[in-house]
């Protein structure tokens, strides 16, 4: 296994108390595999990714437990210098907002080349040639001329391509993409997603795709982990989760999105709001919003029940949910 997250806990110490952002997350990614982590804001999906990358702000953040095994070594036990070497070379991240992730006063060539200068000890001139090559590979037209331009001279889609190029530069074995297409228009979104999937196949990388958009996930992921209030509530191969969700939250999400090919009727809406992370309800965190919650849901935290091979659901009544479609 390329990456394995085991029972990860992350807390934030705030004025209002301890916010438990991640409460025992387990997931794994193999080489060449795409795992989609799905969740709403505050579900802990990005915090988990930041913990894996080692870019969590600490304090106020704190990893309160668990292990992150990358190629069989626990990243949490490494020294900062060792982690820095892994970051960029072995794993890289693509952020949502390319404009604020790029330095506005350096040309894109300088920023891409920096990877080669720092990690590979190349000369500036060689690094620039490499940058042009990378920009070609992510299909930025006229790469030779554009390598000397600044981020603001590129469109949103092109900037996201530069982010992808930067992540790909040292051919890492794992890429974490945090909402890579959320800020883009639909027609550009499709281009960028296709590019990412193609590069992943070419280099046989592991890809963690973090998103809130069930539609984007359907086209590219192999398996899905759905997060709610810092926990994984359901994991499944991509085809099955859409056909037959085994957790009421997943089911509610799928029903609440309007679809292009279906018209009209009132939308199903999950009642209520996601919980405040400093006061997660006892028992199943979803119980106040769940249509089938019973007494046991208010007292016992549901474990991840095995539904099928490769399928798990953290619902006491997963069988009922699965059957009652």
């Amino acid at each position: 296994m390329l990456l394995e997250v085991r029972d990860l806990h992350v807390e934030f110490h705030t004025r209002e108390g301890v916010a438990k952002a991640v409460n025992g997350v387990n997931y794994s990614v193999a080489e060449g595999e795409t795992l989609a982590v799905l969740g709403e804001s505050g579900s802990g999906k990005s915090v988990t990714a930041q913990a894996i990358m080692g870019i969590l702000d600490m304090p106020p953040g704190k990893i309160a437990g668990g292990e992150i095994l990358f190629k069989d070594q626990d990243l949490l036990k490494l020294k900062p210098e060792e982690r820095r070497r892994i970051r960029g070379q072995e794993m890289a991240m693509i952020f949502q907002d390319a404009l604020s992730s790029l330095n506005p006063v350096l040309t894109v060539g300088q920023q891409l080349g920096e990877m080669f200068v720092v990690h590979r000890g190349m000369s500036r001139k060689d690094a620039k040639a490499k940058s042009v090559e990378l920009m070609d590979r992510v299909r930025i037209p006229a790469a030779k001329e554009r390598v000397n331009q600044y981020p603001h001279q590129f469109s949103g889609g092109m900037r996201q391509r530069i982010m992808i190029a930067m992540a790909m530069a040292l051919e890492p074995s794992l890429i974490i993409a945090d909402e890579p297409t959320t800020a883009l228009d639909v027609t550009v979104q499709a281009q960028v997603m296709d590019l990412l999937a193609e590069l992943q196949r070419e280099y046989n990388m592991g890809l963690i795709l973090i998103t809130h958009d069930l539609g984007v996930v359907a086209d590219v992921a192999d398996k899905i982990a759905v997060m709610y209030a810092g926990r994984i509530v359901e994991t499944a191969p991509v085809h099955e989760i859409y056909k037959a969700p085994a957790h009421p939250y997943t089911k509610g999400l799928l029903r609440s999105i309007p679809r292009l090919d279906q018209k009209g009727r009132e939308l199903y809406a999950i009642k209520g709001l996601p919980p405040n992370l400093t006061r997660i309800p006892p028992g199943c965190a979803f119980n106040p919003r769940c249509p089938i919650a019973r007494d046991v849901c208010r007292t016992d935290v549901p474990p991840l029940y095995e539904v099928d091979a490769g399928r798990r659901s953290a619902c006491h009544f997963w069988k009922e949910t699965l059957d009652a479609r």
Binding site: T187, D213, A218, I257, L260
Partner: peptide, 27 residues
């Protein structure tokens, strides 16, 4: 047509039935 075909549909089995028109370049 291009705009509609680019919209991701939350259903992996729909993927095989859809023709994707991917536009080149930017607005």
């Amino acid at each position: 047509q291009a705009l509609l075909s680019a919209v991701p549909v939350p259903d992996p089995s729909a993927r095989e039935h859809r023709e994707r028109i991917i536009l080149h370049g930017d607005v």
